[in-house]
Amino acid sequence: MMEKSLIRPDTISRLAGLAASYSVIIAFLAVVTFFSLSTPTFLTFANLYNVLVNNIVMLAIVALGMTLVVSSGGIDLSVGVAVDMASMVFVMLLAAGFAGPAGVVIGLAAALAVGVLNSILVTRLRISPFLATLGVLFIGQSTQQLSTGGGLPIYMTSGYPAEQFNLIARTSLAGIPTPVVILVLGIAAVYVALHRSVFGRYVLALGIQPGVAWYSGIRVSKHISWVYVACAFLAGITGIILSATVKSYVPLSGNAFLLDAIGATFIGTTLSRERRPSVLGTLLGVVLLAVVKNGLLLIGWNFYWQQVGVGVLVFLVLAVSFGLRRHLN
């Protein structure tokens, strides 16, 4: 901006810069304080455990994949399809009498197929990521409706399948629930891949300056392909955990993760001055969304008002961060 402000001491602009960078953390602290004061049940171990297992784990794993894709300059609208494909194949195989591990492996392979399709469309056929994954989303919806007689859920609440589900969703390692262990492994893997490896540097370079990255000899297609495949794989893991938790496959249920995952990833970008996605930022976004939903439920807002509340909060976080930064530049 060219114009000169009359009053802008250095300290104020520095504070504003901090507020722009840490608006997610400020919002998170404000929200936690508010809910802790409004309801005694919020800040209890039982409730926070419930938020972690039921609201955070599955969304966070999908959002990690979205973070990879957004880092590379793309977007994946088909994460819900990958979630559903893994869930559908896993549950159908168990229903057909397959062993649990075989179901998991083939289910994850189905999710991988979605990722491979995306990467072919984006890198070989050069379709823009938005349109490519939109097309895959449509195709995935039809596939599910056609294979379930129009969208009938498959429930498996007893017998061998239920035991296999419990092995995933109801066990724990060293006192930590298995899904949480899986999440921690996922975070570690994506963190190393994106922030501590050559691969991650290349992916970020692609996201920032694709042309320069190409001229610099980065193998664009190879890296982009891996990003979409990894994203679908992570979404597939969520699909397996989802069907194990609810002991069923409900067609098209994966779509619920799409907008939250995109929201969390982009909320996370407010952490960095250059608006780059990061694992830490995305996780903060996921936790913020989860805590707000849970807290609004506890203070008695119904599902409808929750949606408004989450929307307004996300809007405010973005407004503060983007607005302040624009003001500073």
Binding site: I75, L259, I262, F266, V312, L318, F322, G323, R325, R326
Partner: peptide, 14 residues
């Protein structure tokens, strides 16, 4: 405010 359209309209959609 300069929010990315994809994000701003996503929040407004909610």
């Amino acid at each position: 405010l300069g929010i990315l359209p994809l994000l701003a309209t996503l929040a407004v959609m909610n």
